[in-house]
Measured scan of single mutants.
Amino acid sequence: FSITQFVRNLGLEHLMDIFEREQITLRVLVEMGHKELKEIGINAYGHREKLIKGVERLI
C-alpha cells in the first residue's frame, strides 16, 4: 500500500506533486496534522481533513 494509492483512494491525486516534492511517505503522513499539511502547501481545510481522517482509518 503506497502513498500514491492512498491519495488516489481519497480522490486527492492532484496533491501527489506536493507529496513527491516533499518526499512524504505514509509513515510521515501519519505523523502530520493540519499545521504540517498546511506548511507543505495543502491549503484547503477539506483536503487536510480528508487526509487526516483517512490516516486514522489506516492505523
Rank of each mutant, 00 (worst) to 15 (best):
I59Q: 11
E13G: 12
F1W: 09
L29M: 06
I3W: 06
L12G: 02
T25L: 02
L12C: 05
G54C: 08
R48F: 07
E22V: 06
L37R: 02
V28I: 12
F19M: 06
Q5P: 03
E36Q: 08
L58C: 08
T25C: 05
S2W: 07
I52C: 04
L12H: 00
R27H: 13
H34D: 05
K53W: 09
K38N: 07
K53Y: 06
I52T: 02
L26C: 09
E13D: 10
L58F: 12
E13R: 05
E56F: 07
R27Y: 09
I18T: 06
E13A: 12
H34R: 03
K38T: 10
F19L: 07
V7H: 00
I18F: 06
L29F: 03
V30W: 06
D17R: 09
V55Y: 07
G41Q: 03
N43I: 15
K50C: 11
E49N: 08
F6A: 02
H34E: 04
L12Y: 02
E20F: 09
I18V: 08
I59D: 05
R21L: 06
F6P: 00
F6M: 05
R57E: 13
Q23Y: 07
E56D: 08
F1N: 11
G11F: 04
T4M: 10
I18C: 04
S2R: 07
I42A: 04
I40F: 04
I18R: 04
E13P: 09
G46A: 15
H14Q: 11
N9E: 14
I40Y: 04
I52N: 00
H47W: 11
L10E: 03
R8Y: 13
E56R: 13
K35I: 06
K35A: 10
L29V: 04
E39Q: 12
L37Y: 05
L10R: 01
E13Y: 12
K38L: 14
Q23F: 08
R21F: 05
H47M: 10
I3L: 15
I59H: 09
T25W: 03
I40E: 00
K35W: 06
R57Q: 12
L12D: 00
I3K: 00
F1Q: 14
A44C: 15
L10H: 02
L12K: 00
F1C: 15
Y45F: 14
H14N: 10
L15R: 00
R48P: 02
R27K: 14
F1P: 13
R21Q: 07
I18D: 02
F6V: 05
M16A: 13
K53N: 08
R57V: 09
G46N: 13
K53R: 13
R48K: 02
E39D: 13
I42Q: 02
Y45S: 09
N9T: 13
Q5S: 11
G54Q: 05
G11Q: 07
